[in-house]
């Protein structure tokens, strides 16, 4: 679709309004309920394990450039770096997109500073390995072995290199936690990692970690967006069942999609 038609416009406006409304409710002071996601509870524990072993942490943000997915991962880096800084531990972040370096460096510096551990922060721990997928993976595997990392985090967009890295992490005995919104690599993370945060839970991580009202509100808003999609689907298939496939709702969606 090159241009939005009125139906698409209405839907998009309604969905945006829903998310914003819940953000407002939440920042207004109302405590909103969010269920627990097991992998998220494990983040602190995983960092702790690396500290116990006295080994550095490796945090891979995957293949994404500076985009929304990577941004989310970077927020998690901030959280992980903060706990690591408390124990003067290192967080090595290999990246595939040089544009991400300044952002991650900034975030890490801030985290270490907030724990008054500036001296433990080494900007060289944020490493550009290569813009090329497997050169990157080979580099990450190399770091895992050379630095003998104690914990690995895989947060972001991953492709085929995921298994190479996760299996290597398992070999060096690192505690591993993975999260990706893309379903392709989840089975391999399920097989090689100790904790896996699946699909959309990826976006819930920050809300659960920080207890920030904006993020919590937004997460609830997201839920209601999906409820609307679900209701539209239920209405749609009910109409199709009763009236046949040529009903008005199908036409609206057909006019707006593809």
């Amino acid at each position: 679709m090159e241009f939005a038609n009125p139906f698409a416009l209405i839907i998009l406006t309604a969905l945006s309004a829903l998310v914003l409304a819940f953000i407002l409710t939440s920042t207004g002071g109302r405590e909103l309920f969010i269920r627990r996601v097991p992998g998220v509870d494990a983040i602190d524990e995983v960092v702790g394990r690396a500290v116990e072993l006295g080994r550095p942490i490796l945090f891979s943000v995957g293949l994404g450039g500076i985009d929304i997915t990577t941004l989310q991962a970077i927020t998690v880096i901030g959280h992980v770096a903060k706990i690591a800084a408390r124990f003067r531990n290192r967080v090595i972040v290999p990246v595939v997109d040089p544009m991400a370096i300044p952002v991650i460096e900034e975030v890490q510096r801030e985290s270490y500073a907030s724990e008054r551990a500036e001296e433990a922060f080494n900007p060289e721990d944020i490493r550009f390995l290569s813009g090329e997928q497997f050169a990157y993976a080979a580099g990450v595997v190399g770091i895992m072995h050379r630095e003998r990392v104690g914990a690995t985090f895989f947060f972001g967009n991953f492709a085929a290199e995921a298994l190479v890295m996760a299996e290597s992490g398992q070999q060096v005995g690192a505690v591993q936690i993975a999260s990706t919104p893309d379903s392709n690599q989840i089975p391999f993370f399920l097989a090689t990692c100790d904790y896996v945060i699946i699909g959309e839970e990826y976006y819930a991580v920050t809300a659960l970690m920080s207890r920030d009202p904006v993020l919590r509100g937004s997460l609830i808003g997201q839920d209601y967006v999906k409820v609307i999609l679900l209701l539209l689907i239920v209405l749609g298939f009910t109409l199709t069942t009763i009236m046949g496939p040529g009903h008005f709702l199908a036409k609206w969606f057909a006019g707006s999609g593809g």
Partner: peptide, 25 residues
């Protein structure tokens, strides 16, 4: 969002009872 989700929503409008062929499907 519109290009990714809308066609997927539309193609989930499936009949849960047997139907004869019509002009639309």
């Amino acid at each position: 969002f519109a290009t990714e989700v809308f066609p997927q929503v539309k193609s989930s409008f499936l009949s849960v009872v047997p139907r004869a062929a019509t002009e639309a499907g």
